[in-house]
Design a protein around this nucleic acid. Structure first.
Lengths: 298, 298
DNA sequence: ATAATCAATAGAAAAAATCTATTAATAATA
DNA sequence: TATTATTAATAGATTTTTTCTATTGATTAT
């Protein structure tokens, strides 16, 4: 382990360089002159070289080495100034960076809504959005690479803290000629239809399956796609049916040839909420965010 | 005055970043683990931001701010490493930079002799040569811009320390047809001849005048030139006479048409030696140099 | 369920930084 | 030239900081 001069010593030396007078420099450093003398002397002892010429008590002369020390100090101290300034800024309440992870089956439908709210309500905060599958997001938050995730429950969030925002129903989306005259469906009604779902890993798939799995035979009538848009296009073209959460149904840009029918008795649902590490340094920010978003979603 | 985290704290944080384990990092820093914990905690308090996530006691997670601190530390610490390494190197005996000033009437005649000696005898030292008039050199050494000067005495060196290297005689240099049959001259003999000297400021001029001034009438038979070479050319072309110190006479490259005649009773002289600030940090180096050069000049 | 490992905490001991008071040296002034 | 004022260095006391040992609470591995 190396033995460095202290930052205090470097600051003091810079003050001497600036004022070329011990008494004044000491004053500017809010210390007494003997303290300043002692500090410089100790630094010289530590470095094994004189930093100041003691030839003339009335005139301060830096040795070439002393000038080198001053130069290094002048390079280093501003970097620390910046660091402490950043720290100051970050330590303000409701400020700093929130690294927010969102699952793909929420992001496109909720983000356009809530991001402007956040930016408006918390102008000193910055948000970095990451879109990924639940499992990956949970990994990342555990690794400290994310501060907060917006996801769907139920999900095994281990030791994460969670906050529920809303619970939404699933709807059946099918071609227009399916289920004629039906105002609502039971999950049983979905049997024997091609059920189109997202590929493995998407919690939406699991939530949909969970709601219906008892009714679904273990056959090949399941199809996996990589995005909801793909699935919707396939439904519109008559390939089969799918289950959509309310926020997707509410989207204004659903394809034309799709009929939406509510599900009843029981109505399958998924829950949307935040999750974060217990004891995260961001808890206060997260609480403020949760409260604000929940208020807005009502 | 700003309040920075200490370098120790930054080092400790870097160790944690490196080993991702408090116990091991503490060991590498030669401190105990509680000390390390306390140091990080104190730094966090100082900066007003958490640096590590305390979510999980078994896994170390840096906050984004913590990563910023590490980054700053990694930028700063190497600079200080270099500084201390330089200090180490410089603190070795007979090492470092000597800023040597030499007057123009010595430099061309002595430097080719002694510079190789110095570089050979003190391989760890570096020499920076400055050529200027005595007054300017004395100014510069007082300002701390030079460590050592090689000059001619007598000279008012105020509070400088001096060390004599040699005393050399002056010779008369004249056209071949002057002073026929004379093996030596008195300063009186120079009267009524055009005396060519360097311009004001050169101590050689003063030393020459000092030797002869009582004999010299205050007339216009004095001519001032800017370099010894100019004067020698003028002497060779019959413009007048001049006084040369022995080291110049010994030069192999004197012009052809010049006769050198010793001066006797009294023989004018000048003294060559070193001068430096009393209490200069370089005294030990300077003593070694003086001793070496004097031994060589014998 | 038990043992092992980790970081945090508490309190004592050691080291450091800083202070006041003074001295020695230099420069300015009478 | 003697006196005064100003400078940086020194000495010793005090306060602050750093570090240590011993222990706890939490988590993981066996």
């Amino acid at each position: 382990m190396n033995n460095y001069p202290t930052l205090r010593q470097l600051q003091y030396l810079c003050a001497i360089d600036k004022y070329m007078n011990f008494r004044i420099a000491a004053e500017e450093c809010f210390i007494t002159q003997p303290t300043l003398s002692a500090a410089i002397k100790e630094m010289e002892q530590l470095l094994g070289n004189q930093v100041l010429d003691r030839t003339n008590r009335k005139k301060i002369i830096f040795t070439p080495f002393g000038q080198e020390v001053v130069q290094t100090a002048k390079a280093i101290l501003p970097q620390l100034d910046q660091l402490t300034a950043n720290a100051q800024r970050l330590s303000e309440p409701l400020s700093g960076l929130i690294r927010l992870g969102i699952i793909p089956t929420i992001a496109p439908y909720l983000l356009p809504d809530i991001l402007p709210i956040l930016q408006n309500k918390f102008p000193k905060m910055a948000f970095k959005i990451t879109e990924d599958l639940s499992a990956s997001l949970v990994d990342k938050i555990q690794e400290g690479d994310l501060d907060l995730i917006l996801m769907a429950f139920p999900y095994d969030t281990e030791k994460l803290e969670t906050f529920s925002l809303l619970k939404e129903n699933f709807y059946c989306a099918c071609p227009p000629d399916y289920f004629p005259n039906k105002k609502s469906l039971k999950t049983d009604d979905l049997k024997n239809h091609h059920l189109l779902l997202l590929e493995d890993g998407h919690c939406l798939r699991d939530h949909a399956l969970e709601s219906c799995k008892l009714q679904l035979p273990n056959d090949q009538k399941l199809l996996s796609a990589t995005s909801l848009q793909t699935i919707l296009q396939m439904v519109a073209q008559g390939y089969g049916i799918t289950l959509l959460p309310k926020m997707v149904v509410d989207t204004k840009i659903l394809p034309q040839n799709i009929k939406i029918i509510p599900l009843k008795n029981p109505t399958p649902t998924r829950e949307i909420g935040f999750a974060w590490r217990k004891g995260s340094p961001q808890v206060s920010n997260i609480q403020a965010i949760s409260k604000e978003i929940k208020a807005h979603l009502k």
